[in-house]
Design a protein around this nucleic acid. Structure first.
Lengths: 190, 190
DNA sequence: AAAATATGTCATATAATTGCGACATGGAAG
DNA sequence: CTTCCATGTCGCAATTATATGACATATTTT
């Protein structure tokens, strides 16, 4: 019951993430329920999207905060954040897309928007700190680094989906490539 | 006349790239024509998509081949290829998506598919050569590097769209980040 | 200016999507 | 075994998307 509801929301996030005008039938199919069941849980598309938004915000916020708090070393925090967002999968991808692009924002100043801004500024602060300490390059702007970050999540998700890269190597690849791409100075052995 | 047709195709590529189920009205609006005009040029959605596919293949193929031939230095070829694909914009993004993901492939073994395979194998060969010469790392697989490449294009396009990164820096940022992400060995001064 | 060409406007037919009521079914809980 | 609850099946109306014909208007060609 609650399980079904969650399954539908998760399915919707996946479907709408790469097909915003996708039909509710696609969502239902992905969730392995009939459309009739879907409509029992969600009055209409708008409501469903609201639940998606809520779910994405909640999940991503929790995952990212947990990553932050799992270490006090800034660089480690960044690495853990990357892994956390990868684990959020489409939830992160869609969450980021909806908050980045204005088209998706129905009414500015709502709860989910503030949540995003909060996590976001914390993440940006981390980047700036790393730049100040010369751990990553200052040749790149924080805005670009942020694009690289979400870009790397998307790349990783696509790679996982494509199936021709060993799943257990992927996260390591992602961190390797991302850390280099932001001009990390080589880590010394000790 | 031919101009309008091209405008519609270009608009369709942009629209369908980030909304595969987007309506033809969206396409028409983006192309700044009425839907009636759109239907005069394209019998139906399927035909329009076919033209998109053709246009993407043609444009991307030309751009990438030109990039290859503009230099004999493998690393320079890679850099130029990146720039070329960025310049193709949504055409490259959608081209890559349709060829990467099986969902889009209507019938395997068609003309456009073969074109893609050809460009693709050339690009992969370039990567393998660079790895063999230890110019880029061999810790990453060519498949992952390919994902990084198309991921970087997408990241760049999004960054350009977001508007808060100076357009003239973006391509340089892209190459900086991409080259590092594939473990390029530091270029010596001379 | 007249003819030809391209596009827009409006009406309309068909198909697909959306959303819900009524009832059937099938499994879990009592 | 029976009741309850979730889901499925079927049917239907409302809405939206797709596609085209008929005609008006604007622009370009001759």
């Amino acid at each position: 019951m609650e399980v079904t509801k969650k399954r539908i929301i998760d399915a919707a996030i996946i479907v709408f993430n790469n097909d915003p005008s996708g039909t509710l039938e696609m969502v239902a199919e992905k969730a392995e329920v009939t459309t009739r069941t879907l409509y029992r849980y969600f009055k209409d598309r708008k409501i469903l999207l609201e639940f998606c938004r809520q779910e994405m915000t909640f999940t991503c916020k929790a995952a990212m905060n947990a990553a932050f708090e799992a270490s006090t070393i800034p660089l480690k925090q960044l690495e853990l954040t990357l892994y956390a967002c990868i684990d959020c999968g489409s939830k992160y991808a869609f969450f980021d897309k909806t908050n980045q692009r204005s088209e998706y924002q129905p009414s500015a100043g709502n709860e989910e928007n503030r949540e995003y801004d909060h996590i976001n500024s914390r993440w940006i602060a981390l980047i700036i700190a790393l730049q100040k300490e010369d751990i990553i390059t200052s040749e790149l702007t924080p805005e670009w680094i942020q694009q690289l970050f979400s870009g790397m999540i998307n790349t990783t998700l696509r790679a996982m989906g494509s199936g021709n890269i060993a799943p257990n190597s992927i996260k390591k690849f992602a961190w390797y490539s991302f850390s280099k791409s932001i001009g990390i100075s080589d880590q010394k052995p000790s």
